[in-house]
Structure formats: structure tokens, C-alpha cells
Nucleic acid binder design. Structure first.
Lengths: 197, 197
DNA sequence: GCGCGGATTGACCGGTCGGTCAAGTGGCCG
DNA sequence: CGGCCACTTGACCGACCGGTCAATCCGCGC
């Protein structure tokens, strides 16, 4: 049911279910993972799931929201009060790659959600927020004359595309560290943004 | 069954099924689309499906292979015998974006396949081929001194990331034309590759 | 016109899925 | 101690899924 009263014990259980569900979704995929899979792997009855969540879809949407919120908070902290817009962007890029690395489960869930029309509404809103975050710094950089005047939304999406693809390739396809790749991503994106100096 | 003898009529029917399946997969997603959905929407019995295909998974893999083969052929034609490596890359980028636009169904299927561990083997091989295509031109460009010496695989992936993200945003999220975005993608990628001039 | 074999039908099957719910359990508070 | 209520159980349900197959169709070569 929706909006249930939860004791501390209940809240902990709810978290358990969310965490395990995220693991299984990342491992086997959203659709192939059944509610029975989730509860069985926790050794609890199926009623537990439906006590804490409306259904499978709502649970997944909540995992997505949580992941996005966490990533955004991390970016905000990493950027701090750096005055130079380009340096803010670089800090954001590096922190994003670090987050992808630390939360590769959530990362792969975000990638999947982008391909499923069912979760498009949730994800679209998340992404627009993320893009607006970046766009703000891009506009500052344009005003400061650091990068030529172009559509900042498109630029922001290009940067995100680079990060997602490189992280996907390193973390999910090849299971390699991100350090060297992060430097390459930063260089590629910054030059892509600034154009011919 | 595997490798059946097919009359011309049979080959046409097979194509019908593949095309409609691709549409439905792109529209509703792979998992939520049942074999019954496919045959019912064609107004034929379920046996038709299993006459031409081993199962749902094999059909999807074949759609993927077909899409990849077609895209690669188009890129090869577009590049022609252009001698300048950077210009070859630009031609490849533009043709890729055009293909994404003309085959947005196949495009969204490729994106989904990248997130599903089940199709990773098929897709991985496809992608490696696509990356090697690009890497060859990148190495030429490095030798020619047009771009600094960096890992060409990473560069190729970065470029593909930009294209996929921008195309996804225009074609699937917002249903907008690609022309202006393609120019932006070309500029971003070329500058990202060449670095500070 | 007959028969062969590619092509088609759709009822049927075992299994699984998401989701329900009546029946408990146990910790806490009065 | 008693009763309340957050929490848990797991059998159960109807729907649907991927896949099978015996029966039938039908175009074509002979």
C-alpha cells in the first residue's frame, strides 16, 4: 500500500529489499527479475514485498529516483564553490565517473531505464535536471568567453554521452579501472567544448 | 527449426515477421512484446513464427545483426575513398546520424541490447567491429599529426557516445530533426579529437 | 488429377508471473 | 497481563508466456 507508517525496523527492511532488488535488476535485468526472485533471495515471504511497495514498477522508479538524487548531491559537493566554470565542469565530470564506478549497479539501471519507454517519464525529468545543472556552468563559460556561443543543452548532452559510453565500456563490458579513461574523457570533453583555441 | 529450405514466398513472410517484430520491440520493448503479439498483429497463427525462427531471442539477435551490417555498409559507402582521415571520420559521423534518423527503430533496439546482459555477446562483437573501423582512421590521423597521440579505442568510444546520446535525445525523447544537432556533434567530436590547435 | 512438401493453423501444455489475502506472530505500551 | 498493530507468511489465483504439434491447406511439378 501507499505511504505506510513505518517503524525503524520497517524502514530497515524496506532498504534491504531495495538494495537487493537493485542488485538483481543490475545482474539479470529488470524484466527477467521476478518479485519471487527478490523475496526468495532475501529468505522472506512475498507479502513483505507488497507490504513495502505498491508493485515492481514503483519499486524500480524509486530506485532510479534515489540513484539520481545521490549522484546529484555528490556532484554538488564536488563542485563546491569553485569560481571557474570550466573547472566546475571538470570537477563534475570526475565526480560523475567516480560515482559510476562506486555504484555500477545503479549506473547500469539508469542506462536500462533510458531504453524502456515505461520509465521514460521518471528518467526524463531526472535527466533534464542533470542537464540544467551542467547548462548553468556552460552558460557561465560562454559569458566568460571560455567557450564559443553554442546551444548549451546540446553540449551538456554530448558530455554526458561521452561519460556514459566510456564508463559503460570500462565498468560493464571490460571491468577495468576508470582512472586513465577519466582523464581521456575530461580532455575530450573540454576540447570539444572550447573548440579550437 | 534451424536452416530451413525457403521458397521466395517463404523468404518474404520471414521478412514480414522480422520487420513487424522490430517495430513492436522498438515500441513496447523486447521483454514486454510476446510472440503472440507479433503473430496476432500480422494476423497469422503462432506456428508461422516458429516455422521461421528458433525462438524470440534468436529473432532479436538476427535483427541486431542485420541492423549492424546495414549501418556499417552505409558508413563504408559514405566514406568512399576520401584521403583525409579527419574528413573520413566526419563523413562517418554524418552518415551514422542519418542512419539513426532513418532507422530509429533499429537504433533504439541497439541501445536496449547494450543494456541487456543476454545480448551482450552479439552486441559486443558488433561494437568492436564498429570501433575498429573508426580506430583505423584515428590511427591514420595520429600518424598524420592531425590529432595528438592518445588511445584510439577510447577516442572512438567517446565519439560513439556523443552520437548515441544526441541521437537518442533528438529522435526518441523529443522527436526533433537531427540536422542542427549533427553539426554540433561533428564540431564537438572533431575538437575533442584534435585537442587544442 | 494426384501427390509431395513447404507453409499454416490454433488448441493445447507446463510453467511462471504479478499480485492477493486470511491467518498468524511478536514487540511494545497502557 | 491484554490487546493493538506493525509486520510476516505462503498458499492461492487468474492471466499469460514461450513453445509444441497433429491436422490441414495449397501450389506446383509430374
Amino acid at each position: 500500500m501507499t505511504q505506510r507508517k513505518l517503524t525503524p525496523r520497517g524502514r530497515e527492511r524496506r532498504n534491504q529489499v531495495m538494495l537487493r532488488a537493485a542488485e538483481l535488476f543490475a545482474e539479470k535485468g529488470y524484466h527477467p527479475t521476478s518479485v519471487s526472485d527478490i523475496v526468495t533471495s532475501l529468505g522472506v515471504g512475498k507479502g513483505v514485498f507488497y507490504w513495502y511497495f505498491e508493485n515492481k514498477e514503483e519499486l524500480f522508479a524509486e530506485i532510479l529516483r534515489g540513484a539520481h538524487t545521490d549522484l546529484r548531491r555528490r556532484q554538488r559537493v564536488a563542485i563546491g564553490d569553485e569560481p571557474d566554470p570550466l573547472r566546475r565542469i571538470e570537477a563534475g565530470i570526475r565526480e560523475t565517473m567516480r560515482w559510476f564506478h562506486e555504484h555500477r549497479d545503479s549506473f547500469s539501471l539508469l542506462l536500462f531505464a533510458a531504453t524502456d519507454e515505461r520509465f521514460a517519464p521518471v528518467l526524463r525529468r531526472n535527466q533534464e535536471v542533470a542537464i540544467d545543472d551542467t547548462v548553468r556552468h556552460l552558460k557561465d563559460a560562454i559569458v566568460a568567453g571560455q567557450i564559443p556561443d553554442q546551444d548549451p543543452q546540446t553540449l551538456a548532452r554530448a558530455v554526458i554521452g561521452v561519460l556514459e559510453k566510456l564508463a559503460h565500456s570500462c565498468l560493464i563490458e571490460r571491468d577495468e579501472p576508470l582512472d586513465a579513461t577519466t582523464d581521456a574523457a575530461v580532455a575530450f570533453c573540454l576540447h570539444g567544448l572550447t573548440g579550437p583555441r
